[in-house]
Design a protein around this nucleic acid. Structure first.
Length: 648
RNA sequence: GCUGCUGUAGCUCAGAGGUAGAGCACUCCCUUGGUAAGGGAGAGGUCGAGAGUUCAAUUCUCUCCAGCAGCACCA
């Protein structure tokens, strides 16, 4: 038999017979290692202990000490164990796929009856039995015909389809956990006893389409999470509770920011507190735009379908537009209009008024554009995904040659805004030409390069998303990470030569001839509604002082202080601080509790002492400690703090 | 839009085939209290909407609406 040379992490090499498995290699090193081993790395690939090694390779044996492979295997093996448990309890259930995901895994089943929460408990119990049985995991590579025949006989139509979908030349690998069998690429653990019986949890059931295809029947998906030990599972549970505490829908109610109701699904009734956040943010954005060379416009809400037909939106997005019909009782002839779902066609109309010269370019046209989209009911989510929203939208009309400079300028603009708003952790993704596209290869080459160069010029790295661009041009996406690690795609810049073409936008060039401008669609926040939702969750409601809708409550301790409370409030307001009085007949404990829950950043308490000394006792949200300040001091400090970051 | 679940007072939730309950919030009274709930009294509900079964429906059934979780979607 041929010999191969395996090199280990410590640099030593040993000769083995070709076809040796990592399990045997581990045994040759130490019996204890063979027992502890979970999988291996062979030339960097994650390798099952049972897979043969046929050529010289770098090999390392993984144990549960190696976090990444350990978690991958735990979650993946648990997916199989769960599917086995389900089929043991309900033999008529059909299995489909069960990949790992996030902190756990899911597995999709076809079953007439819905799974109930009680079923999940039963499945979990059975899974623990399987783990305790320490069943061996076995694997084999099968011929396609054999696998198909096997699944046909087993009555597993989804598996037959999955086997058929495996590309020619790829192994068709079968796995067994005990007697239970599944089609799987692997790798897997040695036996089910390597799984932690106390560090996983089935979280919920939901519908999911087979292979994500909404034209196919819906399956039932069971989600689970798993970790290496009980402690990590607990930490995850605490993290979930933390996320629930930050939920903007809950905080929106508690802080009296907004509400939504049945009569206007997906639309927001902003209360005074929430609207203060909104207008403060909008004022800030307007200042940034003004400074960065934008002009601001405002365009109609209800626009005749002719424009949407010309722009191409009618054809592609009619289903998602709010249609407004005006009938003959109201007008001479019936007209069909749509609430604008986006601002760009209207901006082209503004551009098209009068002749534009190359000297007018780049023309940066901004609008806080109120848009309405008929989003599918299942997509709605608090104020994050709504049917009525306002974009911080702008279109930069420019020449091809100006794309790179304008993009770099935009990235710099966006980075300052994110920094001002407290987001320092964000990334750029460049989406390149998709399969279905218009335009020449040369122009795609040029524009993709322009975007990439612009990122570098602005000093940022970017990640490429192959084939994810729009059919008419590439785009940049700006994704920020929040305080608890969630990612939000907010900013975007999209190159569009198509719409100017469709709506016949032109400018007169230096040569006296008409030319076609290109449009850069761009947004920093995305929509105010969603961004405010993100801000609320990022800060768990404790917004930075300048954005906090209620900044200061001046609370009396005794009613003799009422006049001085009024004076303090008045003085703060004159200094530009949002202050209000609380002179209710309640104890200071009660007032502190209530305003703390309302996330008011500063409470000024006023009793006899403060009245006499013309001071205030300052209590900051989240701090137990109080401090005494003179009225002059506190007004000066809070006025400074209330100043938006760009005006300091 | 799809699958599943949910809808009872402003909020959080309990409840039962015979037209409803708690805590907090609200109003009034007492209390003037020094940093996360002082005490008492009172008021408040077409039980999401419509239809059906029944002597009787908020409760059971169906349809619709909305919300929640996930999927699909996100120009």
């Amino acid at each position: 038999m041929a010999q191969i040379s395996l090199t280990f992490p410590d640099g030593n090499s040993r000769e083995y017979d070709a076809g040796i498995t990592p399990a045997e290699v581990a045994a040759s090193i130490a019996p204890s290692l063979a027992k502890k081993a979970i999988s291996a790395a062979v030339n960097g690939a994650h390798w099952d202990l049972q897979w043969p090694i046929t050529e010289d390779a770098q090999v390392s044996i993984y144990t549960m000490q190696d976090d990444e492979p350990a978690l991958e295997l735990i979650r993946h093996d648990l997916a199989h164990v769960m599917a086995r448990a389900v089929q043991e309890i309900w033999p008529d259930v059909k299995v489909t796929i069960g990949p790992i995901r996030d902190q756990g895994w899911f597995y999709d089943f076809d079953r007439a009856e819905p799974f109930t929460p009680e079923d999940l408990g039963q499945i979990e119990a059975r899974m623990k039995d399987i783990i305790n049985a320490r069943d061996a995991v076995k694997t084999e590579v099968w011929k396609r015909e054999d696998a198909i025949k096997y699944y046909e006989e087993a009555g597993e139509p989804f598996k037959v389809e999955l086997v058929n979908r495996i590309p020619e030349g790829e192994d068709i690998r079968m796995y067994w956990h005990g007697d239970w069998q599944d089609l799987c690429r692997g790798p897997h653990l040695q036996h089910t006893g390597q799984l932690p019986a106390d560090a996983f949890k089935l979280t919920h059931v939901a519908g999911a389409y087979f292979l994500g295809d909404s034209t196919r029947p819906m399956l039932q998906r069971i989600y689970g999470v798993a970790f290496k030990n009980r402690k990590d599972l607990k930490a995850w549970e605490i993290m979930m509770e933390e996320a629930a505490k930050r939920d903007h829908r809950k905080l929106g109610r508690e802080m009296d920011l907004f509400h939504m109701q049945e009569e206007a699904p997906g639309q927001i009734f902003w209360h005074p507190n929430g609207w203060k956040i909104y207008t403060t943010l909008q004022d800030y954005m307007r200042r940034q735009q003004d400074r960065d060379g934008y002009v601001e416009v405002n365009t109609p809400q209800v626009v005749n379908r002719k424009l949407w037909e010309a722009s191409g939106h009618w054809e592609n997005y009619q289903e998602n537009m709010f249609i407004v019909e005006v009938d003959e009782d109201h007008a001479r002839e019936k007209t069909i209009n749509a609430l604008k779902p986006m601002n760009c066609p209207c901006h082209v109309q503004v551009f098209n008024q009068g002749l534009k010269s190359y000297r007018d370019l780049p023309l940066r046209m901004a609008e806080f554009g109120s848009c309405n989209r008929y989003e599918p009911s299942g997509a709605l989510h608090g104020i994050m995904r709504v049917r009525g929203f306002t974009q911080d939208d702008a279109h930069i009309f420019c020449t091809d040659d100006q794309i790179e400079f304008e993009t770099a300028k935009f990235i710099t603009f966006l980075s300052k805004i994110y920094a001002d708003l407290g987001f320092h952790n964000w990334t750029i993704k460049l989406s390149t030409r998709p399969e279905k596209r218009i335009g020449s290869e040369e122009s795609w080459d040029r524009v993709e390069a322009a975007l990439g160069n612009a990122c570098k010029a602005a000093g940022y790295e970017y990640e490429i998303q192959e084939g994810e661009g729009a059919f008419y041009g590439p785009k940049l996406e700006f994704t920020l990470t929040d305080a608890i690690g969630r990612q939000w795609q907010c900013g975007t810049l999209q190159v569009d030569p198509n719409l100017p073409e469709r709506l016949d936008a032109t400018f007169v060039g230096a040569d006296g001839a008409k030319h076609r401008p290109v449009m850069l669609h761009r947004a920093v926040l995305g929509s105010f509604e969603r961004f405010i939702g993100i801000l609320i969750e990022e800060h768990a409601g404790k917004l930075p002082f300048w954005l906090a809708p209620r900044q200061v409550v001046v609370a009396s301790i005794v009613s003799e202080a009422d006049d001085y409370v009024a004076e303090v409030v008045e003085t703060l307001r004159k200094a530009g601080v949002r202050a209000e009085a609380d002179i209710r007949n309640e104890k200071i404990n009660y007032k502190v509790r209530e305003h703390s829950l309302g996330k008011v950043p500063v409470i000024l308490a006023i009793g006899h002492r403060e009245v006499e000394e013309r001071t205030v006792t300052v209590r900051r949200l989240g701090e137990k400690q109080t401090a005494v300040a003179t009225l002059d001091e506190i007004v000066a400090n809070l006025a400074a703090e209330s100043t938006p970051p760009d005006m300091r």
